[in-house]
Design a binder for these strands. Structure first.
Lengths: 240, 240
DNA sequence: CGACAAGTGCTTGTATACAAGTCCTGCCCG
DNA sequence: CGGGCAGGACTTGTATACAAGCACTTGTCG
């Protein structure tokens, strides 16, 4: 997350573009490897190259876009190394948060989490909806431990991980299993069983991770083999 | 760390500026709160506004610079909340890494760490030198656990923490005490005493943190009180 | 027929001009 | 003397023009 760089009321078009493109990248609407032409984007969005270009630079800073000078800009492929890093980091942070839980849990957040879990069991659950709930659940746990802001830092480094997870959810909706794991974690937290919560969390996060490995074998073209490799320019390019 | 966004051989002037300004911000050569005029920078560096501006946008994305539209760009003040976040994150990651140490430690890295610690005890130690050694020491520990890359992610979020630490080191050189703590951690790692290493690490990191709190009371103007507050434009501005 | 080379169209990088907003200064008027 | 308002000097935001480089296409020559 860009950590709210400008922070001003007036929304500049660069910022709007950044948010929009970022969402499109994270939701895979812009798939890994997709070419992002500054000219095309500018024309289709009705602005000049400048704000487009600057928003791409911001996304590149997030690691979500790669800019090759004089060649082109591309949605970065999911980098397994970065996914692993983000996974390790996330596990470390979430487990540390569980160790840091106060004796008295914030009842508001607890209620919110309970509500969240109930929704997760909903029968007709859109993948995007589940993803949002999942995100909110984990963030809620961090808020319980008083480290809400740390989540935004983790979220910033989580771009590659999130895209990989989304790929996993797209392929086989295993949301029910994840919902069960969430419930297990939550109940351990409520009963004050820190060790149990940590174990359940570890199990959960590793399940997510192995899901990703499976996906990688299945759709290798979305992953980067050599991070330095330059994508070929769409020659005959089916592309739309 | 910008995670090497372009990754190409040819160094663009934007990238050079980014690296240069970034270093200046992190070393406090550009102190928190300093105004960064695109025009001034461009003129003094002999380039146009474009690369200057774009490098500032990258720094803003890192949270090291704040851009207020139509008002100005400023080196961001050290945000205590972000420092605390980075501290929590760092502790979580480094402790998790200690739990992840392999049975057989890489002898090359071990030798490197031993060498590093020896240098830390050097009599005439520049603050910058100590800081570099400190950084290398912690990174080395992460490499031992096989999570070298996770360090770069942590480093990216560590900007505010690092600047606060540097402030602390500037005020009273307590490097000797830190060197002792480093040695204690290292020896616990070598002897396979995971719990001892974790305890020592926790003690060490918290000592660093309390150092920061002390500095904040001492030099509050370098810290942000209200993160959303807009700096006043230098009116008569002593400024240089 | 094959290989090489100029050409063409794309890309991003940089420079510059202008637009729009903010803040301070100083004049003018009550 | 004090208040208000206009102007100017600064800021960043956006648009546009041109420069430089890469990749493919195509024509030409051996």
């Amino acid at each position: 997350m860009g950590r709210m760089a400008d922070s001003n009321r007036r929304t500049t078009s660069r910022r709007a573009l950044y948010n929009r493109l970022r969402r499109m990248v994270l939701t895979l609407e812009l798939p890994p490897g997709a070419a992002l032409s500054e000219n095309e984007l500018a024309a289709s969005l009705g602005v000049s190259r400048t704000p487009v270009r600057e928003s791409l630079i911001m996304l590149a800073q997030d690691g979500l876009v790669q800019i090759f000078p004089k060649i082109g800009s591309f949605v970065s492929r999911v980098d397994p190394a970065q996914v692993a890093d983000a996974q390790f980091l996330r596990e470390a942070v979430e487990l540390a948060a569980l160790e840091d839980l106060p004796a008295e849990l914030d009842p508001g957040v607890v209620a919110e989490l309970r509500d969240n879990l109930e929704h997760q069991r909903g029968p007709e659950l859109d993948l995007e909806e589940f993803f949002t709930l999942d995100e909110a659940f984990h963030q809620g746990l961090l808020r319980l431990s008083g480290h809400a802001n740390a989540w935004t830092t983790v979220a910033a480094a989580k771009g590659h991980l999130d895209r990989a997870r989304r790929l996993g959810l797209h392929e086989h909706a295993s949301s029910a299993a994840f919902a069960d794991q969430h419930t297990q974690i939550f109940e351990a937290v409520l009963s004050g069983d820190t060790d149990g919560a940590r174990t359940a969390m570890r199990t959960h996060l590793r399940a997510v991770f192995s899901d990703i490995e499976r996906i990688r074998a299945h759709s290798p073209q979305l992953f980067a083999s050599d991070p330095g490799a330059v994508p070929v320019r769409r020659s005959v390019a089916v592309w739309e």
